[in-house]
Design a protein around this nucleic acid. Structure first.
Lengths: 208, 208
DNA sequence: TCCGTTGGTCAACACTTGTTGGCAACACTA
DNA sequence: TAGTGTTGCCAACAAGTGTTGACCAACGGA
């Protein structure tokens, strides 16, 4: 129950090191830390939050389970540290207006291909309330701005972004999580050609 | 480990009673059985497979956990008995060709609204390997036939069905599972008007 | 050289999980 | 009325969970 100051300090640089400035001085245990994070990403992505046990992750990383606790505080902290989602949507300004749909679908596919972190957030988002809120955050902070850049009417931005999210997450769900064979059989080009116009329409077409 | 013949027989009628013929003679415990199944559907739908514990389900049903085991063998058996998915896609023959997209989206929305079983399969399908296979079965046996009824080229049926599945499951995911506010804010009519043409195109438009 | 800090293991705690067997109360039939 | 199968509760088991603290080895600056 008791929060340990020392541990909180210890895992701090790793938690935000990738997105914030502080140089995060190198430590002798960095190899172990990254080993844990790598194993955690794999397990969370493959098994979801509940079935991914700390013991299994520690075993994959070749260390004792107690190390995970020392470095990341608890299981929640480990998940937060392991899974950091940046959809890296590109700036759409230079893209021709009628190409943004295809560009987004293509980017989304490239991003998901073989990415365990994304699978993990989706799995956990479906299972876990905190995970669902995290996904809502991603939607709000990463997809909404893109939609705002392209949509004609600012008032329609959330609705149009939600439609895009449904299409794109549905793709990720069927292809990468449920692994429906027919969804996996489609090539990247086919998906871009089919879904690109859909996303394009959701973003730019006049309200039907 | 040992399978108990008696118990297998006991839960048989309930397991398949809804889809098969045998009259399934009424038992004194039927009230308890349905109470368990109701509670199980709620818990599985709300919490997913792992977090929905037999103890919690039994408590909701107001009986002892051991009763769940007696009537349904084990947790897997309970899930199989509680969650039975019939998407009930209507016969599209009488529907005008250019209306099938809107009809499907509307039907899909009506079906999902307030349906805990569907939420449960999706949650479990994402978490669990067996659940994922179950969802693939639903795709194969319930969505593919519909697509076959409408698609021009039989060879393209799986691909087109997969595209529809991605769009529809993405809708279910964002609106009913992740509960993204922007996806919940859209009305039934808006969704039909926006997504209907998409599904329509995936099913009937010539390969782009 | 000493000594505090860091990296790591081990064994255990407290708890929850699915699951089982025993036993009492009831209902129905012969 | 005796007997038999059904319905239910209770207590417990074995396994697995996140988590903790004691303990040891090596490092690194004084």
């Amino acid at each position: 129950m008791r929060r340990q100051q020392l541990l909180a300090y210890e895992c701090w640089p790793t938690l935000v090191g990738m997105t914030e400035k502080p140089p995060a001085p190198p430590r002798r245990s960095d190899a172990t830390r990254t080993a844990i994070l790598t194993a955690a990403r794999e397990r969370f992505g493959a098994d979801g939050y509940d079935r991914a046990t700390i013991r299994a992750i520690a075993k994959d990383a070749g260390i004792d389970p107690s190390m995970v606790m020392r470095y990341f505080g608890n299981k929640d902290g480990l998940f937060a540290a392991a899974v950091e989602v940046d959809l890296r949507f590109p700036d759409l300004a230079p893209v021709p207006r009628e190409e943004v749909g295809r560009a987004l679908v293509g980017h989304f596919l490239d991003l998901w291909e073989g990415n365990e972190q994304l699978r993990a957030v989706l799995r956990v988002g479906v299972t876990n309330q905190a995970g669902a809120e995290r996904m809502q955050g991603i939607f709000r902070e990463q997809l909404l701005p893109v939609a705002r850049q392209v949509c004609p009417d600012p008032e329609q931005v959330p609705a149009r972004a939600a439609l895009c999210a449904a299409q794109l997450l549905g793709l990720a769900l069927t292809r990468y999580v449920l692994q429906v064979p027919a969804a996996q059989a489609l090539t990247r080009e086919e998906l871009v050609v089919w879904m690109g116009p859909t996303v394009q329409r959701y973003l730019t077409a006049p309200h039907p």
